[in-house]
Each structure stands twice: as structure tokens, then as C-alpha cells.
Amino acid sequence: MCNKNIVKSTQKLCVMAEGSNILLDPMQACKKTRKIPNKILDICKQDSRNKTSILKKITKGISLGFRECENQFRHRKWNCTSQRRSMKKILLRDTRETAFVNAITAAGISYTIAKACSMGELVECSCDKNLVRHNVLLNNNQMTTFDNTKTNIININKNKTKKPRRNGNNKKRARNSNKKQRKAPLALPTEVPGVPVVGENWEWSGCDDNVNFGNRKSKDFLDARLRRRSDIKTLVKIHNNNAGRLAVKKSMRLDCKCHGLSGSCTMKTCWMKLPSFTEVAHRLRDRFDGASKVISNNDGTNFMTEGLSIKPPTRQDLVYTDESPDFCRPNRLTGSLGVQNRECNITSSGEDGCEILCCNNGYQRSVTFVKSNCKCRFIWCCDVVCNTCLEKREIYTCR
């Protein structure tokens, strides 16, 4: 708990620590130690012991984000360890790693709540009803179709004809040509990206994952306290939180199911659904590799890239203000656990290889024997009998 009598510089760091601890202990946001924003208060009013409460889903979403963070960085020097002491130090800083943790946890909350809505696990929401749902419509030489949760109009150009002169014979020719144009059938495109083939019988149905509700609750929980401040670290954190939520929304894809006799596809039912969260995390990891270092602008209300020749970051990019520490050696101040005793791949030349992962400090080889099933055979009826074999395995670890 922060002491009100401490100096301003230390007090600012303490406020940052409290905001970061929400990810390590989501229930802390509901403790009445200070004024709670109304949006968080609405979430905290629900019974936390109820498994269907939004607060429980938020806690589950944060855990999902941390687990996937470990999965994405398991072969790197910084392996996104779940050790509380190390992660707390990472969240106190504003490095590239901090940006990813903030983005992946914000995405985890959105993803978990969106899935819970479509599964009927929350009484506050259901399937997303705001998406445009309609079949292909033809109206005045235009085709209206669904593309990536919004309506796009694809114009079908007609052959332009010259305006006839107002002479007697030319008027008759103009009328005849207009009649022919009205009777001429429209040449429609056969395929539209992201939607079923035009001409097939299909309709919007099923249950869309309610990603809009998930993003809104993620924003209410993580950003409500931050809106009161406008320093560079707050702006960066809000930007990375939004980038994580946007990654969830951008990963939505169309899924269809065929209906018909004898396996035929005479009718399609289509809806928008989320992929596995690993796919969302992989999208954010690509943004991690291309993250931009930013500084505050002159009036302090926004940020800009450190170099004038660097392309400004988009809404989907991750940003940071501090350089990453050295993760090769343990350091309590930065939260680095070092790479000692980390297992590496001797045959790889990538980041999981022994040369890169061990920071050129060398590695050691050990041999172990692992029991595994071998020489399996089928015995009628209905057993599978296997022998137990010892498999030799070489393990390389960093010194």
C-alpha cells in the first residue's frame, strides 16, 4: 500500500506499481482503499464467488494471457516467466516486454469474455447482434455484401453510351438503345473475398462471438483508472492495451456450415468466430518484434517516434519508452532471471539455439534415458500391448 507522506517521485512510481498489480491480482481493483471509477465499480458489484461473474472471466482472461505469453517466448532469453517477483519488476518498467504483457493480457480479457458471451455463460451479454446480417442484395446495379464486419458496396460499371442528339431519328435510336440496356443482364462477380460464393444459397445465422462487448469490458477494467492521467507512460500503456484488443477483433473470421441431403451443400449457415488464442498471441508477437520506441511530444498530450525517419506507429503496433535490460544474467532490479540452466537446441541457428540463447557463455551436455512405449502390437480383441524401451536423449543446457 502506498504511503501518502512519501515524496512525489516515489509516489508516482508507487501509483504505477498499483496499476501493474491489477494484472497480478485482479481482485485488488475492487478493494475500497481509494475512490473506484464507476466502470470498475459496476464490475465489482457482482458476486466474485459466482463463476459466471464478469470479474471471474476477467481473472481467467488475464491468466490466459500470461500462459500464452510463456508459450510464445519459451525459446527466447526473456521467457515471460510467471514468477511474481520477476513479472512485477517487468510491469514497473516501460520496455518492449512490458508492452507485450499489457497487450496480451488486454487481449486475453476480451477473448475470454467474448467467448463466454457466445457460450451463454454471462447474463449481461449474448451473441453479437451488431454485425451486419443479410444475404446478397441486388439494387440499382449494385451488389451489397458482408466483408469483415462491415458493409461494402461493390459497384458494377455499365458501358457508357454517348448522349444522342435531339434530332428525330436520333431520338428513336436513343429509346431503342435504352430499352436494350434495361433488358441486358448484369454481370456479377463470382467471388468476393471473405464471403461465400455469390449465387449460392446462404444466410447469416449461428452465434457470432461478441468481441465488441469483450473489448468494452476489457477497456473498462484496465483503462478506467488511467484516463485521469496524461503522462507518457500512461499514454503508452493505453495504446498497447488498445493494440491487444484490436488484435482480437482483427482475428475474427468467417465460418460456414453446409446443410443438405447426402452430404450436399444446398444451404450454408455462416457466422463470425474467433480463432484459437494462440493465433491472436502470434499476431501480437509479430508486433513485438517490430515495436517502436517513442518519446513525448512538446505539449505532453501524445507521443511520437524517437527518430524523425522512423515510420509512426499504427493502432495495431506496440510502443515502448525504455530499452530492454540484459536478460543474460540475473538482476533483481530489472526482473531478469538469467539464462543459466535453460535448455537449448544444439541443432538450431535461431533464438532457441545454444549460441544465441546462452549469450555465447557456453553450454553443457548431459545424457538421460527416457522410458517410452515401443514394439506395440494389436491382440484380438481388443488390446494393444507394448514393450517398454529406454530411449537415449541428449540435453544441452546453458552454463
Rank of each mutant, 00 (worst) to 15 (best):
N159C: 14
K129M: 05
E394L: 08
M272F: 11
A29Y: 08
P313A: 11
I156C: 03
N157C: 04
K77H: 03
P37W: 10
G19P: 01
N242K: 05
E191Y: 07
M252W: 03
L274N: 08
T347M: 14
I40W: 03
L222P: 05
K237L: 04
H134V: 04
C381R: 15
Q11E: 02
V198C: 01
F66P: 02
Q364G: 10
R165N: 08
A116Y: 01
N387A: 03
D47P: 05
A114K: 07
Q46K: 12
R283A: 14
G206R: 07
M267L: 11
C381F: 14
T388N: 05
I113K: 09
N212R: 06
K217A: 09
K180H: 07
S296C: 08
D209T: 01
C127R: 05
W78R: 05
L131M: 05
L131T: 03
R76S: 15
V370F: 08
I153A: 00
C359L: 12
G61Y: 09
V280M: 01
G260M: 03
H134L: 11
P330W: 08
I22V: 15
F73S: 10
T190G: 00
I58S: 11
I40G: 06
L390D: 06
G263R: 04
A174Y: 10
D147T: 07
T305H: 14
R85C: 06
Q11S: 12
F221A: 03
C376D: 06
K183S: 10
A224F: 03
L92W: 00
S262V: 12
R67H: 04
A243H: 02
G120C: 02
N176K: 08
E323P: 00
V280Y: 02
C2T: 13
C207A: 03
L337E: 12
T266A: 09
L246D: 00
R34C: 09
N387R: 10
E121H: 09
D47H: 09
T190H: 00
D208K: 02
K179P: 00
R49K: 15
I346G: 09
K160S: 08
R173Y: 10
N159K: 15
K88Q: 08
E355V: 10
N21K: 13
H282L: 15
T314L: 11
F221M: 07
R74G: 02
I36S: 09
V101I: 15
K150V: 13
S218K: 04
A174Q: 14
N241I: 08
V294C: 04
N50H: 02
S230E: 14
I356S: 11
R216K: 15
C374V: 09
R399E: 00
L357R: 15
T52R: 15
S63G: 09
K32Q: 12
K179S: 10
Y111C: 07
A106W: 02
S63P: 03
N240C: 04
R173G: 07
G65E: 10
K77D: 00
K35V: 14
G206F: 06
Y111H: 04
C358W: 12
L337K: 13
A247D: 03
Q316K: 11
K51P: 13
R84C: 03
